[in-house]
Design a binder for these strands. Structure first.
Lengths: 128, 128
DNA sequence: CGTAGACCCTGTAGTCACTACAGGGTCAAG
DNA sequence: CTTGACCCTGTAGTGACTACAGGGTCTACG
């Protein structure tokens, strides 16, 4: 499988694959006689693993730790469990922070009096 | 007021102030004979405006649009209102996305069987 | 046989919003 | 006269890619 096919089956840009290889997340593939990268199904699995982890919001560093665990002969579920827990807490915090933010924005917006005023109280408040 | 004092009263690093000046968000201050930046209270207000907007999650571009509006003689509340609304919607979307993510993570975590397993079903699932 | 177009390669620079140096100058206190 | 806090400019680094520039390769069509 060449890089273009891998990219389209996994639904990610070709550049991203080369990038993951460069930073050492994706194992280096064999090369054809013309220098093109040649991927096996194993690579597809790894790439999917990386993309899924990323979509779950794991950072590159966390993805690396996950792949390290996954590379072991008997992947330690406890380690994965810890990483997941840590990450869930982090996501939870981000949600709380965004909600706090949303409330602040809504409070601010209410001062707009339907956007009819000319001297804007919102700007005054932001400047204090 | 020199840059260090401005920084400490506004609670932001000195470098950030120089950065905001460089990208044209903060008006350029006068200089003392020795070349040091000399800030007025007006600058403090602008900086606070920028920092508050940033803390509300506005992007640099949005902050720029806000400062442009604020610079007008009669700031148009309607324009601010629109920007706020747009931003609230965006924050709302991000919250929804994070919640979706949180659910996916929790579902995945439940498969861990208390982290006692050795062949990890989570890793299997991520790889498919 | 020639060429157009799709694919591939490497390497570098750009993104956002800063942050962290490197390598200097200035100034007040001891 | 030296120490240390403050200031200056300019450049490089962060994360996680993305977008070129400037080339090579391969297949199909005329």
């Amino acid at each position: 499988m060449r890089i273009g096919e891998l990219a389209s089956t996994c639904g990610c840009p070709v550049e991203t694959i080369r990038y993951y290889e460069k930073i050492g997340l994706l194992p280096t593939p064999a090369r054809l006689a013309n220098g093109y990268r040649s991927y096996e199904d194993e690579h597809r699995k790894w790439l999917q693993f990386i993309l899924r982890s990323r979509d779950l919001g794991f950072s590159q560093d966390e993805v690396r730790r996950l792949t390290d665990i996954a590379h072991q002969k008997r992947p330690a579920c406890a380690a994965v469990h810890d990483l997941l827990e840590e990450h869930v807490i982090d996501v939870h915090k981000r949600i709380a922070e965004l909600r706090r933010l949303e409330n602040a924005l809504l409070r601010l917006k209410r001062q707009c009096h339907d956007g009819t005023l000319h001297d804007c109280p919102v700007i005054d408040e932001l400047m204090q």
